[in-house]
Design a protein around this nucleic acid. Structure first.
Lengths: 113, 113
DNA sequence: ATGGTATATTCCAAATATCGAATATTTGCA
DNA sequence: TGCAAATATTCGATATTTGGAATATACCAT
């Protein structure tokens, strides 16, 4: 049983373990948005967005509502947003590491060019 | 910059996206433990434990302290435990899915046998 | 019915994560 | 010094994740 709980938690974290999926959840902080709006705001590929949305749906982090042509997504449980809030405090407290991440990304960009 | 923050968050979630690593952090809830104690309590391979500990160290979720022969690990920031606490509320609220995970694991076990 | 718009799914290749076995490193002690 | 205990690292095989291209599906309007 303990194992199942841990697997459940691990699955949950795995679902959020991608910058695009974090970005999607953050976009939905204020309320539901259509898939198209999310794609537009994040500037990502349609297929890619749809795959990430499927993952978030499968883990029950998002729920969706069809309205005619469109599909509107929203965060199912506000505790998920609470977790992201704590995360924000957490990395404000450890800003130096965030900056290290930033520098690493910048360096990788330079290599790529 | 926004991207770096998201990458940082994603890395954090990724670090916790494994049942063994969740178990390790939970073991450390009450305070530091040696690597050997963690291995003993979880009943996992030494090499495997060491790899997971390395991941948690790399993401600064754990800190370690050498004392002679042994290495003691502890959770660096109690906000990490807060996040796990919220997770507990979260899956109590969604126990039916936890049970579904449990059943899925059970089923997989049966197939394996 | 036909075409257009919105979204989802499938397929494939590259990248990454995982595990156990073997090996290496560090430290304490005879 | 040399051996044993504790921990870390490397390596190779396998599994999972990821993104893009192509394709499929659902719904609406004409």
């Amino acid at each position: 049983m303990q194992d199942a709980l841990r697997q459940f938690k691990a699955d949950f974290f795995q679902a959020l373990a991608h910058p695009t999926r974090i970005a999607i959840v953050e976009q939905l902080r204020e309320g539901e948005l259509s898939a198209g709006t999310i794609i537009e705001r994040l500037g990502i590929e349609q297929a890619n967005a749809s795959q990430h949305l499927a993952i978030l749906r499968a883990k029950n982090i998002l729920v969706n509502r069809k309205a005619g042509n469109q599909v509107f997504y929203s965060v199912r449980d506000r505790r998920i947003l609470e977790i992201l809030d704590i995360m924000r405090q957490y990395f404000h407290a450890h800003m130096s590491e965030v900056l290290a991440t930033l520098r690493a990304i910048d360096k990788a960009d330079k290599v790529r060019r």
